[in-house]
Design a protein around this nucleic acid. Structure first.
Lengths: 338, 338
DNA sequence: TTGTATGCGTTATCAG
DNA sequence: CTGATAACGCATACAA
């Protein structure tokens, strides 16, 4: 930049003004500077700018794994939303492990960016105080672990309720649930289980715990295993609710292997509305949690907080995005959209 | 850091030495400095370090879209491999658009990181010279667009050949191909088409172009559309080769809708070995391109080049990772592993 | 082994 | 509207 200044016969400050498109620059000097810039092939040094500005124009997105379709699709949305606001996204992979999640919150690497959008999975309620960080933070995806942190939640309970009710309306009474009870009590698992339980209770149905297939990780493989365990107990099942779509798809795979027809013998529903479920055979009834809105809202909240330089621990807002049930072939096709 | 130095009664330099774990520091002063650091809650400023060092410890990964399972799984692997080498990954989303891809190569944002791992999709051979950049660059996934750039390729032709031969060995003769011919000639599409064509030719079979379903984008939806077009031409089809797995799964969905059984009526195979194909109904025969090895190799090549500060345009190496065919239910189950 | 001085490339301040 | 100069926080000679 100094070279450019010399070549254009102006000061460094003026070059900076031109580069940053500041208002008070005469057209003449501006074009002279621009000429010098292109002649010298000058490119700005971001590290220097970051140091001077105290900001980096990057935000961190911390998710369990990219290979989980929900997080892949979410990341896409976050990256797009961030780009709209002029931010680039640094991805941290936690594997859903509590250790790694705590590490991300305090790591040095995190400090390279202006803020964090964090989708915790392994964190327990007892870890809530660890979320009182001194940088902009927005939590994603489940119930607030800590009231003072911005948080964009999905309607886990409502969605789970609605989809369970849908199964019951289809005349199913022996509904298996695939996933984890998540005894920690704050995660999506327990909330979705809660919605499921509530719907059953309301219909006067008692859930037989033998129809619960637990799964710590939420993958197709663990969903399949959980489904096998339930079926192997020899208890009748006429519907399966997967706590998310990949679990449901894993379960569906096992039903296929055992020669059970979906939805004739067993209806299947999931949660997340990943694209895969629109093309599975049969296509999967699910809950659309409002992923796009969640991502956009999270980015906006974070960028706002960054812009106004607020301390992160001040008045966190909890925004809940409404879920929408999408009925497809796996429960017998469209009936209603609640 | 100055505060820490003052508090510990040493110089800034000494603090820096401690933080960076330099050898020649006495244990006494070291512990005194560490104490001061924790008392003051000091954290290093990365922007400053980056400015001084001229490196950032970040690399950029440019992919079309995260929601495409292949790239989601690839990203996961790259992130893990980068972490092993102490690097963090910044994700750029190109959408597979040529414009965006060219932009990524020269953008200011790119300059925030030490190097680029780039999976081009829209770039044409004519754009090859645009790859002569002055920073460490590693290309991913297809044939070399430019000889002087490091490049990790998969065995597209060999894999496509093998999987087509597998279909032919199963007695199929009317094989449809779903995807794009990619007339630009350098992309995975044309290479995989080439392998397909070669295998047919070797078996003395002439490919009827009416059995080609083109698709610019490679998604489940475009795969389904392409399959529909082929079937609607009324020409017989006893096998389908999707140029990648999501295309094949989209095609399989259409076969399902039309009441065609897989593999009895129509055998189906894909390319990529995404996890989804292991759990689809039926499970999908495919080509495992060596994703993990590709990601690891790319990261190592890039980090090496960064470490030794070589100009990017010097002697690019092309490494080809061998593909492996994986036979599953969609072609009638395991027969051989080539 | 540790301190001092200087540079990294930008932005901000405050004159002019 | 523009220029000189001081931060920004750390690393790296080189000196002690």
């Amino acid at each position: 930049m100094r070279d450019v200044a010399r070549r254009a016969g102006v000061s460094v400050k003026t070059v900076s003004n031109v580069v940053n498109d500041f208002p008070h620059v005469s057209t003449a000097t501006k074009s002279r500077v621009l000429a010098a810039i292109s002649e010298l092939g000058y490119r700005m040094n971001f590290s220097a700018r970051n140091l001077s500005l105290g900001r980096t124009g990057m935000i961190t997105l911390a998710v369990p794994e990219m290979r989980l379709p929900y997080f892949a699709e979410l990341s896409d949305e976050v990256i797009v939303a961030a780009a709209e606001r002029g931010y680039t996204v640094l991805v941290e992979r936690t594997g859903g492990l509590r250790e790694r999640e705590l590490e991300v919150l305090t790591s040095d690497r995190r400090r390279m960016t202006d803020g964090l959008i964090f989708s915790p999975l392994g964190l327990r309620p007892a870890d809530a105080h660890r979320l009182e960080v001194d940088y902009p933070l927005v939590l994603l995806g489940e119930r607030s672990l800590h009231g003072s942190v911005h948080h964009v939640a999905m309607g886990n309970v409502a969605g789970a309720r609605a989809v369970t009710e849908h199964l019951l309306e289809r005349g199913r009474r022996r509904v298996a649930v695939i996933g984890s009870y998540d005894a920690r009590g704050a995660g999506a698992g327990s909330l979705r289980t809660q919605g499921f339980t509530e719907a059953l209770a309301e219909a006067g149905i008692e859930h037989d715990p033998r129809r619960t297939g637990e799964a710590i990780e939420w993958t197709r493989a663990t969903g399949a295993e959980a489904m096998r365990r339930v079926l192997d107990r020899g208890i009748g099942v006429d519907a399966v609710y997967g706590l998310n779509d990949v679990l449901a798809l894993g379960a569906m795979r096992v039903l296929f292997e055992r020669g059970l027809r979906v939805p004739e013998d067993v209806a299947v529903a999931g949660f997340d509305d990943i694209e895969e479920g629109r093309f599975s055979c049969p296509s999967l009834t699910t809950v659309q949690p409002g992923r796009t809105e969640i991502a956009r809202t999270a980015v906006w909240l974070l960028v706002d907080r960054i812009a106004r330089g607020e301390p992160a621990v001040a008045g966190g807002r909890e925004l809940v995005v409404g879920p929408q049930i999408i009925t497809r072939e796996s429960t017998g096709g469209a009936v209603e959209s609640a």
